[in-house]
């Protein structure tokens, strides 16, 4: 499938998702509201902690707002573009409808990605951006263009991490039924990335930086945005690592797809 065709298909599915949002307006509103409430409870809890203690090591409350806003931006991007990937794959396989996807004259991975666009993710991203900007204003820190550039690339790296997780679970779905349940494990383990890595000690910090880079969900993007980290070498190491992980995840997915033998494999 050439890129132009993929983009056309992607925008067609995007327009279908938009139609769905406008048709089920109450559902969209309530889901968006739940995402906003979810995004607000984190900063609220952190505010209460800062009211009674000095809070997290090396992080002021406004900096924590930037940190928490970044989580919402990274996850919002994931939610908007790939989050439904493993569940949709699992459902299609279990119901025996994945074969119809294979009959389409398009790249399977591209087609599946175009099917899982979710507008709610954009609401989450906007909420995150608002929290982040409030944090930046309160901290008095004014990031320059380079900070924003590092931030944007590292947020994309964080998104790629979630994409790799989705591909991993999607690949398992070809072999084992209801493998999408394993996403629950990933979701819960990814909560380690919801707090600054500095609280975990050196061993876990290393693991969450170079083995399972959960630090990319927020810790590293927020650090580079706030100018707390300026190590370009680290930036390239993390970006390189994510490119390798994503490449391996795509390869794994392609191999699993080739071995798929219909009706749950």
């Amino acid at each position: 499938m050439n890129f132009k065709r993929f983009i056309k298909l992607y925008f067609q599915n995007l327009s279908m998702e938009l139609s769905s949002v406008t048709t089920y307006r109450v559902a969209f509103f309530l889901n968006s509201l739940s995402l906003i409430i979810g995004a607000i409870t984190g900063p609220l809890a952190v505010l209460f902690i800062y009211n009674v203690s000095p809070g997290f090591n090396g992080w002021t409350f406004p900096e924590m707002l930037v940190f928490l806003g970044t989580i919402q931006i990274t996850f919002g991007l994931t939610h908007a573009l790939v989050l439904g990937f493993s569940w949709v794959t699992a459902d299609l396989i279990i119901n025996g409808r994945f074969d119809t996807v294979l009959l389409n004259p398009v790249n399977t991975l591209g087609y599946m990605l175009s099917r899982v666009i979710d507008f709610d993710g954009f609401v989450q991203m906007i909420t995150g951006l608002v929290i982040l900007i409030i944090g930046l204003f309160s901290s008095g820190y004014n990031p320059d263009f380079t900070n924003w550039l590092f931030f944007a690339f590292l947020v994309i790296d964080g998104f790629l991490l979630w994409f790799a997780f989705s591909l991993l679970i999607g690949s398992l779905c070809f072999k084992y039924e209801r493998s999408d349940e394993w996403f629950t494990i990933i979701f819960n383990l990814a909560k380690f990335g919801d707090y600054p890595l500095s609280i975990y000690g050196s061993l876990l910090s290393f693991v969450f930086t170079f083995i399972i880079p959960l630090g990319l969900i927020s810790y590293y993007p927020a650090n580079f945005l706030l100018g707390k980290l300026t190590d370009i070498g680290l930036f390239f190491e993390l970006t390189g690592l994510m490119l390798v992980i994503t490449f391996l995840a795509v390869k794994l997915y392609s191999k699993s797809l080739k071995n798929y033998s219909s009706a749950g494999g």
Binding site: E177, E181, W182, I185, N188, K191, D194, I199, Y200
Partner: peptide, 24 residues
């Protein structure tokens, strides 16, 4: 798989909260 996923995943949050408060 669902039961196993719950067994592995659900204590993670507890472990994180313990680490968070130890750090604070």
């Amino acid at each position: 798989a669902q039961v196993l996923a719950k067994l592995i995943a659900s204590p993670a949050e507890l472990v994180i909260m313990i680490i968070v408060w130890m750090s604070i």
